[in-house]
């Protein structure tokens, strides 16, 4: 189990990490998600031992790692731009960590071959690093990280620079590989899709500290704050005013428990708004965008709405200008802290 607590890293005047906590169970894939500059990469460097924090501790299976240099931690770190050794071919890149363990030659060769198989590059040992495509480099970097059998795998935006098709394929390949090896993983990304596909649990960081934590479904359904909601790309996020435990937007009123922190914001998932002649909210279609399978329709809310627009997920799109009535499922409305 990895326990990171209270990590602070300052560069000159700015703090890259400012009280970062993270717990990862054995065999778990934890995703750390945040906008660029939120300190995600620095966190991985601290865990790997490449960065000495100004404050805070890192524990692995209960043992403090402060005095353990990076090469004795037995963790694997895959860098954002791969950092392959330009003077070694593919096989010798993957062999590097095994050589450092002092394994016999034939065993190294065998494990290099196995690992290249695992990442889908069988027989690539003799190829020069410079001749690899982006996707191949990514696979070699992953193989190099996994070959020594690290007890913890750290990945820093590993799919960041790949094109969409390749990314989608690796998004299904990588969890399968980790499952097969039973790896414990910390995966850093700014991308929602990657986070949802990889992570058993997700930690959202902002300004060098965690601001949300949970499974993908939890965070999507009940984002704890307005920042998290908009970072996850939730639609229909509104600030609301509260009177006596009732939140109102002018066109919608929902109860707020007394214990919920004020001020309050709400998020309404587009799939929980239905175009229904019996609905009690009036509006006009502004625009409809096909996104494969369904349409996202923007509807301008009619009265007392200050130009509010709702995004609705629907199978059929009425043309722009069509008056519609909407029904909102009050149970699906998420209450957020502002």
């Amino acid at each position: 189990m990895l326990e990171v607590s209270g990590i602070v890293v300052r560069y000159e005047d700015t703090a890259a990490l400012d009280g970062m906590d993270l717990t990862v169970l054995d065999g778990e894939r934890a995703v750390v998600m945040g906008p660029s500059g939120s300190g995600k990469s620095t966190l991985l460097r601290v865990i790997a031992g490449l960065e000495v924090p100004d404050d805070g501790t890192v524990r692995w299976n209960g043992r403090y790692l402060d005095d353990v240099p990076p090469h004795r931690r037995g963790f694997g770190l895959m860098f954002q731009d791969y950092a392959l050794f330009p003077h070694r071919d593919v096989g010798r890149n993957v062999a590097y960590g095994l050589e450092m363990q002092g394994l016999p030659r034939d065993e190294i060769a065998r494990r290099v071959a196995d690992t290249l198989d695992l990442v889908g590059l069988p027989g690539a040992e003799r190829r020069a690093v410079a001749t690899l495509s982006g996707g191949e480099q990514q696979r070699v970097a992953l193989a190099r990280t996994l070959a020594p059998g690290p007890s913890l795998v750290l990945l820093d935006e590993p799919l960041g620079s790949l094109d969409r098709t390749l990314r989608d394929r690796l998004l299904t390949d990588m969890p399968a590989i980790f499952d097969r090896l039973g790896s414990t993983v910390v995966y850093v990304t700014h991308d929602r899709e990657e986070a949802f596909a990889i992570g058993h649990r997700i930690t959202v960081v902002e300004g060098g500290k965690p601001v949300a934590h949970g499974t993908a479904a939890d965070l999507w359904r009940r984002p704890p704050s307005r920042f998290v909601a908009s970072f996850l790309g939730l639609e229909n996020v509104f600030d609301v005013t509260t009177h006596h435990d009732v939140a109102t937007t002018g066109w919608l009123a929902i109860p707020v428990p007394a214990s919920h922190p004020r001020p309050v914001a709400i998020a309404i998932p587009p799939e929980h708004i239905v175009i229904d002649p019996a609905g009690d909210l009036e509006g006009t279609v502004v625009e409809a965008r096909f996104r494969g399978g369904s349409y996202l329709v923007r509807v301008a809310v009619a009265d007392g709405a200050d130009g509010a627009e709702l995004t609705v997920d629907t199978r059929d799109a009425p043309p722009p200008g069509t008056p519609v009535r909407l029904r909102i499922d009050p149970d699906a409305v998420a209450l957020l802290a502002r």
């Binding site: 694997g76 770190l77 860098f79 590097y96």
Partner: peptide, 18 residues
């Protein structure tokens, strides 16, 4: 690129080995 030497360190190479 300092990441290349960092990579070697995380793969188990001590300062002299790096």
């Amino acid at each position: 690129d300092p990441q290349v030497t960092d990579a070697a360190r995380t793969l188990g190479a001590g300062p002299l080995s790096v």
